[in-house]
Each structure stands twice: as C-alpha cells, then as structure tokens.
Computed example of a mutant assay.
Amino acid sequence: MKQMDFGKQALLIIDYTNDFVATKGALTTGKPGQKIESNILTLSEQFFQNGNYVILPTDLHDGVDPYHPETKLFPPHNLKDTWGRELYGELESWYQSHKDEDHVYYFDKNRYSAFANTNLDNFLRSRRITNLHLTGVCTDICVLHTAVDAYNLDYQLTVHKDAVASFDPIGHSWALKHFENTLGATIV
C-alpha cells in the first residue's frame, strides 16, 4: 500500500467487528470483509505513527429493542458484552495495545451513521480535523451513511476502496460510485 501524506486527518474504521466480518458473525460480510483486514491494519498503523487520529465508531445494541428501526431489518448483532461485538481479528489486538493513546478513539454508536446520536462532529472540530478517511463495513450501509453525514457537515472525504466491504457486491459498487460522484470523495 502506498505511503500517504496525512496532514490533519483522521481514519475512521467503521463497525469492523466479529458479527460483521467473522465467518460465524450474525450479519457477516464474510470473505470480502475478511480480505480487507491487512489494509485496515496497515492504515491504522500509518495514521497512528503520523500522529493522526484512528477512530473506531462501533455499533452497539442492547438486546432486541422493539423501538430500534434495525430490529425489523436485521437479526440481533453487535450485542453488548458479546464475542460478536469485539473487533475482528488482529484489529482487536491493535486496539488493545493502543487504546490508552490520545490519538485512538473508540466509541459506541447506535445508528448507521457514526455521526447520529454521538459526539463525533464535536470531537473532530475541537481537534481541527477536516479530512476523514473511511474504512470498514458495510460499504453501502454504515460507511455510506457516515459519508453522507460527513459530506453534509463539510468534511473532506477519502474512501479506501481496498479497506471497505459489504455482503452485497452490487451495493458495494454502487456506494463507491456514489462516494465519488455525489459526495465528491476521493477514492484510493
């Protein structure tokens, strides 16, 4: 992977958990999600070593909530205190060895977008971060909704096409085009 000049930027690793990536995950992307692990790890270390933020917005559900809109759409996933909610593969180890660092920020989210019902926008603005690099899963769900909100909040976007995945190949391809053609994102 090419070395990049990061400037004042942050890497978002969206929902890269066992339930979304592992073979036995409740709502898994399977092989496409597993295939991007090394790219996510490389980017994590590059951003961290360059003094930029590595941010891990991670889906959290607390049982079956009849009022949550996802309950009607998807099986239970990313449940509190379960194996399914742990970060997938080596990212869990990377996070555990960096979690006390100032430039690593893990937070819970309960909607598709990492901005909905969270302090992410305030967190980024207080650190004068204006450029976001998006990775994770699912390209056409949580990554997409985070990108749309980021665009509407005037963040510059870069999507790493070899570090996003979906269980829907058509949705994945559509989202990559949408990032570039509608949100003005740079696709690398």
Rank of each mutant, 00 (worst) to 15 (best):
T42A: 15
A22P: 00
K99D: 07
A185V: 01
K24N: 15
H178N: 06
Y151G: 00
E90H: 08
F179P: 01
T130I: 03
H103C: 07
R85H: 05
T29I: 11
Q156Y: 06
T130A: 05
D154F: 03
Y53P: 00
N152K: 09
W174Y: 15
S166M: 07
S126C: 08
Q34D: 14
N50C: 09
T28V: 10
L73Y: 11
G171F: 08
V64S: 11
Q96F: 09
L73P: 03
I13G: 05
T118I: 15
V64Q: 11
K99Q: 12
I187R: 02
H145F: 08
P76D: 09
P75S: 10
D81C: 10
G184F: 01
F107Y: 11
H61A: 06
L183A: 01
L124E: 09
C142A: 07
M1K: 10
D15P: 04
Y155N: 07
I170Q: 15
G51W: 03
H160N: 06
D154S: 12
T139G: 12
H68V: 11
T23G: 05
D162R: 08
K177Y: 10
L12V: 04
A163M: 08
G7H: 13
H61N: 11
W94R: 01
H98S: 07
K2D: 13
Y155T: 05
D62K: 15
E86C: 11
W83H: 09
P32A: 13
D15I: 05
Y112A: 08
D108Y: 07
L183I: 00
V137S: 02
D154M: 11
Y16W: 10
Y88E: 10
L124P: 00
S97T: 13
P169C: 09
N152G: 03
E86L: 15
N122E: 13
V54N: 02
W174Q: 06
H172F: 07
I14G: 02
I14H: 06
D121R: 04
A22R: 07
